[in-house]
Simulated assay, not measured.
Amino acid sequence: QGVALGAYIDGFEVVNRRFAGGAFDWLTPFSVFCGLALIAAYALLGCTWLIMKTEGRLQQQMHDLGRPLIFVVLAVTGIVSLWTPLAHPDIAERWFSLPNLFWFMPVPVLVLLCTWALLRAVANNANYSPFLLTLALIFLGYSGLGISLWPNVIPPSISIWEASAPPQSQGFMLVGALFIIPFILMYTAWSYYVFRGKVTVDDGYH
C-alpha cells in the first residue's frame, strides 16, 4: 500500500488520456520509502490498538514499544513531507506560497501537537487515548496528501472532474451506495460492540 501510495504521489505519465509510462515506473526510491513509512505507521497503530485492548504484561510491553515507534513515525513523516515538495515543484508552490502557507500551517502544527499528546499518553500508561491520537496522526497525514494533490485525482494533471464517470453512471452508483452503506455502518458498529472491552487471559472462543 505504501509503495502504491508513493507511486501515486509521483504521478503517472499520460498522453492523450492514455497511460504512457513503463511497467516499473512505480518502483522508485520515494515509493519504496513510502512503503517503509506506512509499515511504521501500521506498527504504531497496532501497538496502540493492543494498548487499548489488552492489559497486564502485554499492555506494558506495548507501552514500552510505543515511544520509539512514535519517534520513528514522526521521523518518516517528516522525511516524506520534505521529500514530496522537493521532488514536485507544483506541490512545493502550493504549500509554501502565500497565503497558502498560513492556511495550511495548522496541519504540521497539529501533527506536532498530536505527537506530543501521544508521547504523554504512552508515558502515563493511558488506555484509549494512544489509539485515538494515532488515528488523528494518520488522518492528518492523509489531509496533507489531499492538500498536496487536490484536485488532481490522477497526478500530476488529471483532475477529479476530468476523471469522473458520466453523471448517469454516478447516479446509478449513488443508488447502490445509499442502499449498502447503512448496512456497512451497522455491521461495523455491531462488530465494535461485540468485541468491546479488553481481552483478558480468561477470554476464549465458545
Rank of each mutant, 00 (worst) to 15 (best):
F183G: 07
I138R: 00
S81A: 15
A177S: 12
D10H: 02
K198H: 02
L140P: 00
W161A: 13
L45M: 15
S164T: 11
S97C: 03
G78L: 07
G204A: 05
Q59M: 12
L65H: 07
L118I: 09
F24T: 14
V109L: 15
L38Q: 02
L119G: 03
L185C: 14
S143L: 13
G22M: 03
V111C: 02
L133D: 03
G141F: 14
I154A: 05
G21T: 12
F102D: 07
R17V: 01
G78D: 04
K53P: 01
F104R: 06
G78E: 00
F104D: 04
F179R: 08
N152H: 15
L140C: 00
Y205Q: 06
L110V: 05
T134Y: 02
S129E: 14
T188N: 09
G11L: 09
A126G: 10
F19Y: 15
F24E: 12
P182I: 07
V72M: 09
R57S: 10
T188Q: 05
A7N: 04
G78A: 09
P130W: 06
L44Q: 11
P106N: 11
A165Q: 13
N16C: 04
W150L: 09
P151N: 07
I70M: 03
L50P: 00
P155N: 04
I70N: 03
Q1H: 11
M52E: 15
G35C: 02
I79H: 06
L27K: 07
I39P: 02
W83F: 14
S164H: 02
V109Q: 00
T200Q: 05
R94G: 01
G6N: 01
T28G: 00
T54H: 06
F183K: 12
G6E: 03
A41I: 04
N125D: 09
A4F: 08
I184S: 13
Y128G: 00
M105D: 08
V3E: 09
I39L: 14
Y205A: 11
G56A: 12
A41F: 01
P167D: 02
V109H: 06
G144T: 00
L113M: 11
W95N: 08
T48E: 00
G35D: 02
L50V: 14
S143A: 15
L119M: 09
R94T: 00
E13D: 14
V199P: 01
A43I: 06
G171R: 11
V14Y: 07
N100G: 06
A92T: 01
F96N: 12
L27W: 12
V153K: 01
D64V: 11
A117T: 06
Q170P: 04
L101E: 03
P89R: 07
E55G: 14
L112R: 03
V153S: 12
A121G: 04
V14K: 08
G21A: 08
V3M: 10
L132F: 10
G144E: 07
P182Y: 05
V32W: 10
F172W: 13
T77R: 05
E13R: 14
F71H: 15
R17S: 15
F96S: 09
G171L: 09
T134E: 03
G56D: 11
I181R: 07
W190A: 12
P85W: 06
V201K: 11
I51Y: 03
M173E: 14
D25K: 02
L98Q: 11
Y142E: 10
V111W: 06
T84V: 14
V175E: 11
I158S: 06
L38T: 08
A75K: 03
V15E: 15
F179I: 15
R17I: 02
P151C: 04
G176I: 14
